[in-house]
Computed example of a mutant assay.
Amino acid sequence: MDFKLFDESIYKLFGKDLLEEFNDDYGYTYKAERPIGKIGYATNLSIETIEEAVKQGVDLMITHHDAWDFIYGLREACLAKLQKHGISSFWIHGPLDFVSFGTCTSLMDKLDINRIIQFSFYENGDIPGIGEFDKSIEFDALIKRMSVKLEEPVRFWRNSEKKVRRVGVLTGAGHTTNHLKYAVEKGCDTYITGEATLYSIQYAQFAGLNLIAGSHTFTEIFGVASLAGKLKEIDQNIEVVELKEMHFEHNR
Rank of each mutant, 00 (worst) to 15 (best):
F6V: 05
Y11V: 14
D17T: 15
L19R: 02
L19S: 01
F22A: 11
D25Y: 07
Y26N: 03
T29S: 08
K31H: 08
G40R: 05
Y41H: 09
A42E: 07
T43Y: 08
E48H: 12
K55F: 11
V58I: 15
A67V: 13
W68M: 15
E76N: 12
L79H: 08
K81E: 14
S89Y: 08
I92T: 11
D97W: 00
D97C: 08
V99W: 02
T103C: 07
C104V: 00
S106N: 06
L107I: 06
L107S: 03
K110E: 15
R115T: 12
I116R: 09
Y122H: 14
G125R: 04
G125F: 09
P128L: 01
G129E: 00
G129T: 00
K135E: 07
K135M: 01
I137C: 08
D140L: 14
L142S: 03
I143C: 13
I143N: 04
R145E: 15
E151P: 00
F156D: 01
F156H: 10
K162Q: 12
G168W: 01
G172A: 09
T176H: 11
K181H: 06
C188K: 03
C188M: 03
D189R: 00
T190N: 04
Y191L: 03
T193V: 08
A196F: 12
T197W: 07
F206R: 15
G214E: 11
K230W: 02
D235N: 14
L243P: 13
K244I: 15
F248T: 05
